[in-house]
Computed example of a mutant assay.
Amino acid sequence: MAVNYEGIALVLNCGSSSVKYQVVDTTKEEPLASGIVERVTDHGVAIHEIIDVLGKPDSGVDLKALNVVGHRIVQGGEEFSAPTIIDDEVERGIAKLSVLAPLHNPGHVAGISAARAQFPNIPHVAVFDTAFHTTLSEAAYTYPLDLRVAKEHGIRKYGFHGTSHGYVSRECAAAMGKDPKDVNVITLHLGNGASADAVQGGIAVDTSMGLTPLDGLMMGSRTGTIDPAVVFHLHRAAGMSIDEIDTLFNKQSGLLGMCGYSDLRDVHKAIDEGSHDARLALDVYTRRIKGFVGQYYALMGSVDAIVFTAGVGENDDIVRLESLQGLENLGIKIDAEKNAGRKKQATLVSADDSKVQIWVIPTNEEREIATQSIAAVS
Rank of each mutant, 00 (worst) to 15 (best):
D263M: 01
I369A: 06
V349A: 00
Q325V: 08
I112P: 14
L324K: 01
G35L: 07
L299P: 02
A115V: 09
W359H: 00
I73A: 14
N339Y: 03
A336P: 15
L147Y: 13
M1T: 14
G224S: 11
G15W: 05
I332E: 01
I112S: 07
A237I: 13
G294D: 03
A101H: 10
D277V: 02
N315E: 05
K56A: 06
D263N: 13
F232A: 13
F80I: 05
D263P: 06
Q295K: 08
G154A: 00
H235F: 02
M176Y: 10
G70P: 15
T371C: 05
V312Q: 01
G76S: 10
L217V: 03
R156Q: 11
S208F: 15
P31F: 02
D25K: 04
C172E: 03
V312E: 04
D182M: 09
D42R: 08
D146C: 09
E29A: 15
G313H: 13
F160A: 10
D146K: 14
G107K: 07
Y141D: 11
S98R: 06
Y5K: 09
M1H: 14
V127L: 14
K64I: 02
G70C: 06
A376C: 10
S164A: 10
G177I: 12
A237D: 12
M209I: 03
L97P: 09
E89I: 13
K64L: 04
V205Y: 10
K64T: 11
G35F: 02
I358M: 06
V312N: 06
L12A: 07
N329C: 01
A281P: 10
G35D: 04
E30F: 04
H71W: 10
N13L: 13
S137T: 14
S221V: 08
I47G: 05
L321S: 07
V23M: 10
E30Y: 09
G77P: 15
A110D: 05
E138M: 03
V205R: 01
N192D: 05
S373I: 09
R148E: 15
L147I: 11
Y158N: 01
V307A: 01
T130K: 03
G301D: 00
L256A: 08
I289Y: 06
R39W: 08
L256G: 13
S59Y: 12
E322A: 10
G201H: 06
S208M: 11
I332A: 00
S113F: 08
N364Y: 15
G60A: 12
T309L: 04
D227I: 11
G15C: 06
L264C: 14
S208R: 11
H189R: 12
G210N: 12
Y141M: 01
T309I: 01
A117V: 05
A2R: 15
G111S: 13
M300R: 02
V231C: 04
T26N: 02
I318M: 09
T212S: 15
L190M: 08
G331V: 04
D272V: 00
L10G: 06
N315Y: 04
A33D: 06
R39N: 15
M240A: 02
V68P: 12
I51E: 04
D283N: 11
D227P: 11
G313R: 14
D353N: 15
K20R: 09
G177Q: 14
M209E: 03
S18N: 12
E152T: 13
D272Q: 10
R265C: 07
Q345G: 11
A237M: 04
L97M: 07
K344R: 15
